[in-house]
């Protein structure tokens, strides 16, 4: 009688332990539907589901010069401006690439700046298949977040079950302390993209 009861209790405990284990080890919804990474380096053609992206160069500047509505403006920042020039192509239908994040070596995410309102050559980029286009992503980053950074590019800000290009920024020319070798005083956003 006692042995029977102990066996029942053991089975109950085991069932509870299995249920708890399954609950804690279950992947979260956000992980299941999160971005599907497509990795590459600078200069590689990185193929996401709807677009293809190549990072050509990364430049740094202390001040951005823009003309908006015919007025000249200069924009300063608490860190430095990072300007990423990319070549984009659509895979098989017209698509819009609008979201980019500069991810620092420790995982801090710096979204592309929204302070430049009416400047051409900035996202969102609409690209057609067979007609590659060039564009710039502009970020404000602290100097300490440059060495070992990754560029994350996707079609939209919020998405599920879609790919995200993750480009390791491995071709930057940096000083030994991790800050860029070349920081321009002024970067003119009105110059054509090269």
């Amino acid at each position: 009688m006692i042995g029977h009861r102990l066996a029942n209790l053991a089975i109950l405990g085991l069932a509870a332990a299995i249920c708890y284990g399954m609950q804690t080890s279950k992947p979260h919804y956000a992980d299941l539907t999160g971005p599907i990474p497509v990795r590459g380096g600078m200069g590689d053609d990185v193929k996401a589901r709807l677009f293809q992206l190549r990072v050509d160069k990364v430049e740094f500047a202390k001040i951005l010069a823009v003309s908006e509505f015919g007025k000249d403006r200069t924009l300063t920042t608490g860190g430095i401006w990072a300007i990423v020039t990319v070549e984009l192509a659509a895979t098989n239908s017209t698509t819009t690439v609008s979201e980019a994040t500069w991810q620092g070596p420790t995982g801090l995410g710096y979204r592309e700046t929204e302070r430049l309102a009416m400047v051409s050559g900035l996202p969102p980029f609409t690209v057609e298949p067979g007609l590659p286009a060039r564009g710039r992503f502009v970020f404000e980053v602290p100097p300490s977040e440059i060495s070992g950074a990754t560029l994350l590019v996707s079609n939209e800000r919020a998405f599920a079950l879609d790919s995200q290009a993750r480009i390791t920024l491995d071709g930057l020319r940096l000083k030994p302390d991790g800050t860029p070798e070349m920081v321009a005083d002024i970067y003119d956003m009105d110059e054509p993209i090269q």
């Binding site: 403006r73 979204r111 700046t113 302070r115 404000e140 980053v141 602290p142 977040e145």
Partner: peptide, 16 residues
């Protein structure tokens, strides 16, 4: 932003 008047500026990690 007082630096240049942008409305609803996104504030980035660890940048005062």
């Amino acid at each position: 932003l007082t630096r240049d008047p942008s409305m609803t500026p996104e504030l980035h990690p660890a940048m005062k």
